[in-house]
């Protein structure tokens, strides 16, 4: 018998179940489920992994295995309300991407992958964001910030932003 989840809300479970008819088995719901939980909680704690596994009928280790592979889902604590991916791949690097990342981390007093103490902002290096026509660029939640200078990026990342979908 499946116990009532504590971390996963009824809405999250309903969203996961709504996608179930799309796939011939429930394991394929792993990534969608992780995204659904992460969109709400801004991280996927181990307790949530166990509950996702229970909902999907999998071993927790199967879900955890997938989660850790991607290095995308934070597990220890939530990422910031704004999660900024700063591109460091070749096209952006040629136009100052590394410098941009360094400047932003310094300006906010955090290391790459770190979150500001107020929980507002996380800065992460990203590999190619596929927006090389706007290099250097940043993906902040759902917003693509194009042709960024360090100063412009600093100002942009102070703005409040809609949650990533």
């Amino acid at each position: 018998m499946i116990s009532k989840p504590k971390i996963l809300s009824d809405e999250m479970v309903a969203k996961i179940e709504a996608l179930a008819p799309r796939y011939p088995n429930r394991r394929a719901l792993t990534l969608p489920a992780l995204h659904i939980v992460n969109a709400e909680l801004r991280h996927v704690p181990l307790e949530a992994v166990v509950e996702i596994a229970e909902v999907l009928g999998l071993a927790p280790a199967e879900v955890q295995d997938t989660l850790t592979f991607y290095q995308f889902f934070h597990q220890e604590k939530p990422h910031g309300k704004v999660r900024a991916f700063v591109c460091r791949s070749v096209s952006c690097a040629l136009r100052g991407g590394d410098h941009l990342l360094e400047h932003l981390c310094h300006a906010h007093g955090i290391q790459p992958y770190g979150t500001t103490p107020d929980g507002e902002l996380t800065i992460e290096p990203a590999e190619c964001l596929g927006a090389c026509d706007f290099a250097p660029c940043i993906l902040a939640n759902d917003d693509l910030l194009e042709n960024m200078t360090p100063e412009a990026a600093e100002a942009e990342l102070k703005k409040p932003r809609a949650r990533a979908t």
């Binding site: 088995n25 997938t66 995308f72």
Partner: peptide, 19 residues
């Protein structure tokens, strides 16, 4: 979920299967 290897066709398939 941000992994280059998912562009390899069988990597994509494994990822779609939830692995």
């Amino acid at each position: 979920a941000a992994a280059y290897i998912c562009g390899e066709e069988t990597g994509l398939i494994e990822s779609l299967e939830g692995k």
